[in-house]
Simulated assay, not measured.
Amino acid sequence: MPRAYWLMKSEPDELSIHDLQRLKIARWDGVRNYQARNFMRSMAPGDLFFFYHSSCPEPGIAGVARIEGEPYADPTALDPGSHYHDPKASAEKNPWTARDVGFVEAFAAVLPLATLRAQPGLEEMPLVQRGSRLSVMPVTEAQWQIVMGLARK
């Protein structure tokens, strides 16, 4: 089965590409949008994703990471001390998903959203669409190759 490609957003003060580089593997949690959660559930071990730094002074694609293992219930939904706590979730019925992710590569420089929007061939990428707010989204192989080319310049 061919590999799938994704983009996942994280605020760097929560988890940055450099944090993941240091940790090697980390839990990706806190996704509270059903469409984004469904994308996380459909990922396969070994799928690659662009690690996007969001809600920060320099938002953009900061590197590449890999999906490790199978999806599992997001423990932050059950933790009253977490800002991702969901009071409707229970141990028996937790609708939220977490994934373990592994470090692959940090780019030499973050690829800013403005650069991605201006790049021919990325017009259909959900990230560059106005109003696109999803934190997890699919990326086509063609889009993946274009972005990797930009990162290598």
Rank of each mutant, 00 (worst) to 15 (best):
P59Y: 09
N94Y: 02
G81A: 12
G81N: 15
L23N: 07
E70H: 02
R32F: 02
L20K: 10
L78S: 08
M40S: 06
S42F: 01
G30E: 06
R22N: 01
A26H: 04
G102L: 02
R66F: 05
P45E: 12
N33H: 08
H53W: 09
L23Y: 12
V31L: 09
G81C: 11
V101M: 15
A36F: 13
F50H: 11
R22S: 06
K24M: 03
Q21H: 04
L23P: 05
F50C: 11
T76E: 10
A26I: 03
R37E: 10
D19R: 06
A36Q: 08
P95N: 11
K93V: 13
Q21Y: 08
R32T: 00
N94I: 00
T97I: 07
S90N: 06
A91I: 02
S82T: 07
Y34F: 08
L78R: 06
P75C: 05
Q35W: 00
F50A: 12
S90Q: 09
H85V: 15
D86T: 14
H18C: 08
K24F: 01
D29A: 06
Q21C: 04
M43L: 10
G81K: 11
F103P: 01
R37C: 13
K88T: 15
S54E: 05
H83M: 13
D79K: 09
D79P: 08
A89G: 12
P59T: 03
F107R: 09
G81D: 10
I25K: 10
D100G: 11
K93L: 14
A106P: 06
E68A: 00
S55G: 08
A106C: 10
L78V: 04
G46W: 00
H18I: 03
A91T: 14
N33V: 03
L23W: 14
A77D: 04
G46S: 05
K88E: 15
M40Y: 09
D29Q: 11
Y84G: 14
L20I: 10
E58H: 14
G63D: 07
H18K: 07
K93R: 15
A73S: 13
E105I: 07
A77G: 05
G69P: 04
W28F: 14
A65C: 02
D100Q: 14
H53C: 06
F107T: 09
L20F: 12
L78Q: 10
R32M: 04
E105D: 12
P57F: 00
F51G: 10
A36Y: 06
V101K: 08
Q35T: 09
P57T: 01
A106H: 07
V104N: 12
N33C: 06
I61N: 13
Y84M: 14
V64R: 15
A36R: 05
P87D: 15
D100A: 15
W28L: 01
A65Y: 01
K88W: 12
L23G: 06
W28V: 12
H85E: 14
A91E: 13
E68V: 02
